[in-house]
Amino acid sequence: MKLQHYLGGLEGLGPVSTETRVFVEPWEKRIFGIHTAMMALSSQLPLPVTPSTFSTVWTWADLRKGAESLNPFDYFRFRYYEKWLGGICGYFIAHGYITAEELDALTEDYYAEPGKALPSAGEEAIDARIVQYLVEGDSPKREAEVNHAFAVGEEIVVCDVPTIEHTRLPGYLRNKTGTVETVYEGAYTYLCDTGPDGIGAVMPVYCVRFDPATIWPGNAEPNFAIYADLYAHYVAAPASARQAA
């Protein structure tokens, strides 16, 4: 399990940033644009054909996997878009778009000459595809028949699934008991198959309410609740209910 998914309720982690700007440095806008273009060019939606040489699949999950693969100390040392940059660079190297040596050489060139012009870019067809992708989006909701095992008001326990690369399950909720608040209509998929973690296939999603006192015994404020949207694979009936069945 990744350390960064266990942070809920931990104390003494240092000052919390109150920065409200979406982009703190100008280069962060470019990283966001690169990420968006990669998603649009690899999307399976019926979008315009382009002359782009980008031929692999990139999703939000790939971005998250890149960040979560960092050494935990680096994960907390780098800022948000610095982690994006590392994940994107690693992806391009892993898929053969550029070598690590070529990337290092280019980096040194721009360190030595910060004012050096960036490569020119711009293809009308590529721009049109990206804009259409941004307008239409890419919903995880699917038209499929699924079995909703739980109803509103039922008690569930969060599973402790094995996680290797990536997860959408907060660590501090594992093995905790909660109550189903909402059963979302329809079925939902995830951006990739997470292996032993268990999501990727079409399944129900539940909004589950937790009493903070059960998550952080003796260290929770009263009169509020924690809510989490959880894939069906992450929740199960409590042991007592399974035994009664």
Rank of each mutant, 00 (worst) to 15 (best):
T107H: 14
G96T: 06
E108M: 09
G96W: 10
L106S: 11
P114L: 02
K83D: 01
I93T: 08
T99E: 09
Y97P: 04
E108L: 11
P114Q: 04
G96R: 10
A105S: 14
A100N: 07
A112K: 12
L106I: 10
L106G: 14
A100W: 02
H95G: 00
G86C: 07
L85Y: 07
H95S: 03
G90V: 06
Y111I: 07
E82Y: 00
G86R: 15
T107C: 10
E102H: 06
C89M: 08
I88A: 02
Y91M: 05
E113W: 00
F92V: 03
Y111S: 05
T99W: 04
A100F: 01
P114H: 07
I93A: 06
T107V: 09
E113G: 00
T99N: 04
Y111E: 08
E102Y: 02
Y97T: 10
A105R: 15
Y97V: 09
E102P: 01
P114I: 05
I98E: 13
C89F: 03
D104V: 11
L103K: 01
W84Y: 15
I98L: 14
D104R: 15
G90T: 01
E82S: 05
G87I: 02
E113Q: 12
G96P: 07
K83H: 10
P114V: 05
G96L: 04
G96E: 07
F92G: 01
D109S: 11
E101K: 12
L85K: 11
W84T: 04
I93V: 15
G87F: 01
I98Y: 10
Y91L: 11
G90M: 04
A94R: 15
D104L: 13
L85I: 00
W84V: 02
K83I: 09
K83M: 09
E102F: 00
A94E: 15
L85H: 06
G87L: 04
Y110K: 14
I88C: 02
T99H: 02
